[in-house]
């Protein structure tokens, strides 16, 4: 009887867990990011590789509207390199003296141009699901960079009996398990300029790290300032405690 109850309980729990997985996506693997922890800082090489993945793969469909080319200085690029990179993009400007809009090469002060003029156009070109802007993606999903990395590596063959809807792809980490985006990364999808071997896992990690930077560009300053503030407050609070003890000593 006892065993039966236990088995029934286990079944209920298992069904419950199964439902939870279907609704929220599987538990994300935790990656040991260079920027996590109190002293965490970005890895410049990783960010540069992530930028390369964004430019060569993601930017075909996803915008990065809150990031300006000038911001890339934080990744370790020189002013000239940034000028060169931004000039590769064509940016809409205007109106000119004739009242017409025109295209011109990008400048350091420009923001990454979005691949589609608006969300409707983006949805129309992508089977009805507009690819979201990536600037804040690493803060806009539970799990943050772990989610970004997991999602990019979470494409698997669907389990037996799972019917994905027309045009949707099976992904173990996506809520509902059916995502419009096809698996974007495969080994050697880019050729890293720094010679790193471009495995899918390497690219997913680099990109997630890069997107953490685009979402939280002041993370390094926040961490280093925080350490100083905490150290100051520890000493200051110690002094305040000593002062309190001194003031109250004549009462006890």
């Amino acid at each position: 009887m006892k065993n039966l109850t236990a088995a029934a309980l286990a079944a209920v729990v298992a069904i419950g867990a199964g439902q939870a997985v279907a609704a929220e996506g599987a538990a994300l693997p935790k990656y040991d990011w260079s920027f996590s922890g109190v002293f965490g800082q970005f890895d410049r090489a990783e960010l540069q590789r992530g930028l390369q993945v964004y430019r060569e793969v993601c930017s075909a469909c996803h915008g990065l509207q809150y990031v300006a080319f000038r911001n890339l200085e934080a990744l370790g690029y020189s002013e000239d390199e940034i000028k060169e990179m931004s000039a590769e993009y064509s940016v809409a400007d205007g109106p000119n003296d004739e009242g017409d809009m025109f295209e011109r090469p990008g400048r350091a002060s420009d923001y990454f141009p979005s691949p589609f003029p608006n969300a409707k156009a983006a949805a129309a070109a992508n089977n009805g699901a507009a690819p979201p802007d990536l600037s804040l993606m690493a803060k806009a999903r539970p799990g943050g960079p772990d989610y970004v990395r997991g999602l990019l590596l979470g494409y698997e063959d669907p389990p037996a009996g799972f019917e994905a809807l027309e045009g949707l792809n099976y992904n173990i980490y996506f809520p509902g398990n059916q995502i419009a985006m096809a698996a974007p990364l495969f080994d050697e999808a880019v050729e890293y300029t720094d010679g790193t071997e471009a495995t899918a896992e390497q690219m997913a990690t680099d990109l997630a790290s890069f997107l953490m930077w685009t979402a939280e560009p002041y993370l390094e300053k926040r961490h280093s300032m925080g350490v100083k503030v905490i150290l100051f407050l520890l000493v200051f609070t110690g002094i305040l405690y000593a002062a309190k003890r001194k003031v109250w000593s004549d009462l006890h």
């Binding site: 925080g226 350490v227 905490i230």
Partner: peptide
């Protein structure tokens, strides 16, 4: 002082 320590811990980290 104690309050600011906890507060700064959250704000910065």
């Amino acid at each position: 002082g104690v309050f600011l320590l906890l507060f700064a811990g959250i704000v910065f980290f």
